Computed example of a mutant assay.
Amino acid sequence: MKKWAFVSDFDGTISKKDFYHLVMEKYFHEGEALYTKWKAGEMKDIDFLSTVFSSIHQDETQIIEDIHSLEIDEHVTAFIRKVQAQGGDFYILSAGTDYYIHHILQKYGITDVKVFSNEGYYMEKNVHMKIDPDHPHYSERYGIDKSTVISELKEEYEMIYFAGDSEPDSHPAEVADVTFAMEALQGILEERGTPFIKVNDFYDIDRHLTEREVLK
Rank of each mutant, 00 (worst) to 15 (best):
E158A: 15
Y138E: 07
R207W: 05
M159S: 08
K37A: 10
E174C: 10
L215E: 05
E190I: 02
K107G: 07
A184V: 05
V149L: 08
Q58H: 05
A40V: 02
D169V: 04
V214N: 06
M24T: 09
K107I: 04
S55D: 10
S54C: 10
Q62D: 13
L70H: 06
I92A: 12
D45E: 10
D145V: 06
I80E: 05
P136D: 11
I197T: 11
L70K: 08
V127N: 13
K39R: 11
A173L: 04
V76S: 00
Y99M: 03
T77N: 08
Y20H: 15
E213L: 11
H57S: 12
T111K: 15
I14Y: 05
T97S: 14
G120A: 11
R207C: 05
I110R: 00
G193Q: 01
T61P: 01
A85V: 06
S117M: 01
L105G: 00
Y35A: 08
Y100V: 00
V149S: 06
I104A: 10
L34K: 07
F19L: 11
K16I: 06
S54M: 11
I56C: 08
T194A: 00
S54Q: 14
S147I: 03
M159I: 09
Y20G: 02
H208P: 00
M159D: 10
D201N: 13
S54L: 03
L34S: 09
Q62I: 15
F6L: 06
I14R: 05
A181K: 01
T179E: 00
S55I: 06
K44Q: 10
E71N: 14
V7G: 09
A184L: 06
H137I: 13
D98Q: 09
I197V: 13
L49H: 03
G41Q: 02
R207E: 11
S151K: 13
M129P: 07
